[in-house]
């Protein structure tokens, strides 16, 4: 099985990769990618099944917090049933999105603002080094540069320092990070294509 899976992964990857550089492989690349798109969607379904199984098991075992798991399953199954009967575009489904999903996510995001400030305040208490100080100074500069005063932009910070930091200094670090990420993904992809890494498992 391991050999078969490795062959599948390597062959698929090679054909798709050739499609980037050779016109002759464009069609096969498109075909394989469309298959992959479908299967990726199916894989997401499997994840949801796993979520159901985990919480159903919690309820079965009557573990602590199984009431919350029951709520989760009720919400999941109910939404799924309603959604399969209707469509995501139906007003009821939009109601669920606009009335529950979006508010909860946004509220959680709002809580993050408090947590971020708290973390920034406590940062230097535990870590007083160059990186921490630079980190906080940069944040403060950008805070100042993002805000405005009643009479206009923040002098010096809003018009000069903020753009210079974000477009020059932060850009340098961001480019380094991006290149590093690209090199990492390149290495990871090559390892998969060479069969060194086999994250897909197989016995």
């Amino acid at each position: 099985m391991r050999i078969i899976t490795a062959v599948i992964a390597i062959a698929t990857g090679t054909l798709i990769l050739l499609g980037y550089f050779f016109e002759a492989f464009t069609d096969i690349q498109t075909l394989l990618l469309n298959w992959a798109v479908i299967l990726a969607g199916v894989a997401a379904i499997v994840g949801i099944f796993n979520l159901i199984a985990v919480h159903a098991d919690k309820i079965r075992r009557a573990e602590k917090g199984s009431v919350y798991s029951a709520l989760l399953l009720i919400g999941l199954v109910g939404t799924l049933l309603v959604g399969m009967l209707l469509t995501p575009r139906h007003p009821v489904m939009q109601l669920l999105l606009n009335g529950i999903i979006l508010p909860v996510e946004a509220a959680l995001m709002a809580l993050l603002a408090v947590s971020l400030l708290y973390a920034a305040i406590r940062l230097l208490r535990r870590r007083t080094d160059v990186m921490g100080i630079v980190f906080l100074l940069t944040a403060i500069i950008l805070f100042l540069g993002s805000a405005t005063l009643p009479f206009g932009d923040m002098p010096l910070f809003g018009t000069l320092i903020h753009p210079w930091v974000t477009q020059i200094w932060a850009l340098g670090g961001a480019r380094g990070i991006l290149i590093g990420v690209a090199l990492g993904t390149l290495t990871t992809g090559l390892r998969v294509l060479f069969g060194v890494d086999r994250p897909y498992g197989g016995n």
């Binding site: 798709i16 980037y20 298959w35 990871t188 294509l193």
Partner: peptide, 27 residues
Amino acid sequence: GIASLTMAFLVGAGAAVIIAGAVTGTL
């Protein structure tokens, strides 16, 4: 274990995509 066949297909496709994207789109 049988699912690894499909996962291998997805992983192989993803590896090719990220390789080409990283080289042509970022590096």
